[in-house]
Amino acid sequence: MERAKFIFALVMAGVLVASCGGGGGDAEPAADEAPAPAADAKPAPDLSQAGSVAGKVSFGGTTPKNARIRMDADPVCVKEHSGIVRSQDVLIGDDGALINTFVWVKSGLEQYGFDTPAEPVTLDQKGCIYTPHVLGIQTRQKLQVLNSDGTTHNVHPLPRNNREWNQSQRAKGKPLVRSFPRAEIMIPVKCNVHPWMKAYIGVVPHPYYAVTGTDGAFSIENLPPGDYVIEAWHEKFGVQEQQVTVQASEAKEVSFEFSG
């Protein structure tokens, strides 16, 4: 009888230890919670004489025709729209304003450290379209993904530099909250249930970024004086960059023109 007790206890304990212990050992801390890079150690910039960079992004070529997006496989999406829905990949406003261009300070801020903003950035899914289409976020800042639709989506960012994830979200489901620990221009986000749905997230290590609106304008405020490289990114037309020097309290004008 002793034998039976022994074996029972040992084997059950062994399997439990191996599974839980083994599992625990393998569980790497998720990338989201990885310790922050040494940025915190760097000083915050002196903003007493801060200037700004602002301007316009325009498009010089012939305006391409946006393809028709057919949502017919999901009646919930169809109901949210009247008339034909078109792709958002290239949106041109009045006077050739190039909408949804991501403009950010590519270099010149390396010596500074920045706090992570407490308030999250929101990406909504509405009418089976991502709103906004292009957005910026600071490293480690919370990204909050909402689903305002009455249909299920899956949220699938496809980063090269951050951890990939892919999560389903129920109709009107609870917000998903995630973050990206490493800078990356740009992370495409896709919904596989509605393959036309795409958003782009620019993850930058500082708060100096902007997305052009319907007038193609952007404005990066509160920038400490210094030499910078400003980059403009567009999903179809690629990137352009410009060197600028911002003097104390100067409002610098910078413009970009893409030709397609």
Partner: peptide, 24 residues
């Protein structure tokens, strides 16, 4: 997918120009 060409239809091929790609 985003630009409305989920199959990679090559429009330089004349046979492709009248192809109709639908989700239903």
């Amino acid at each position: 997918d985003e630009g409305g060409n989920p199959l990679g239809l090559d429009l330089s091929d004349t046979a492709a120009q009248d192809d109709l790609v639908l989700p239903i």
